[in-house]
Design a binder for these strands. Structure first.
Length: 134
DNA sequence: GCCAACGTTGGC
DNA sequence: GCCAACGTTGGC
């Protein structure tokens, strides 16, 4: 089981929207690194849901419901999408500020390469985020 | 709203 | 194949 972090601007698709939909096709990724991460996702993997720009916090947890398939929104090029389902909202969002101040989390891709929209997360990082959310 | 960081594009 | 120019992202 692997851990991931997906990023979304709450203005365009918040975690609440996601929960209301019960399932989302994660389409529109047009970055090679992010695409490779999508490809590496396995059904049942866990992903943190991060709100960029507004909030700047991890707000929820999602599960991979369907592994990578060709992105239907891509007219050309070799792009993929996955399907995600919401698992649960965190009791308390874990903000980017907090993440930066924690030693275990300061090496996260989120901090090092903030622009990557689909990123791997280590188990240690994941566990720490969950602990902080309580 | 600004701007730094990064990725992509295109001229050479 | 290099690198300058450009566009986009996202933190501030």
């Amino acid at each position: 089981m692997n851990y991931w972090l997906v990023k979304q601007e709450p203005d365009s698709y918040s975690f609440d929207d996601f929960v209301a939909d019960k399932r989302a096709a994660w389409t529109g990724v047009r970055n090679y690194q992010a695409r490779n991460n999508l490809r590496a996702m396995k059904k049942g993997d866990t992903a943190l849901y991060y709100h960029s720009n507004i909030g700047k916090a991890v707000v929820g947890i999602a599960k991979v419901a369907k592994e990578a398939y060709p992105d239907p929104t891509a007219k050309e090029g070799d792009w993929v999408a996955v399907d995600l389902v919401p698992e649960k909202a965190l009791k308390r969002p874990v903000t980017l500020d907090e993440i930066k101040t924690h030693k275990t989390l300061s090496e996260m891709v989120l901090v090092k390469n903030s622009r990557l929209s689909v990123q791997p997360v280590t188990k240690a990082e994941f566990d720490q985020i969950i602990a902080l959310a309580k």
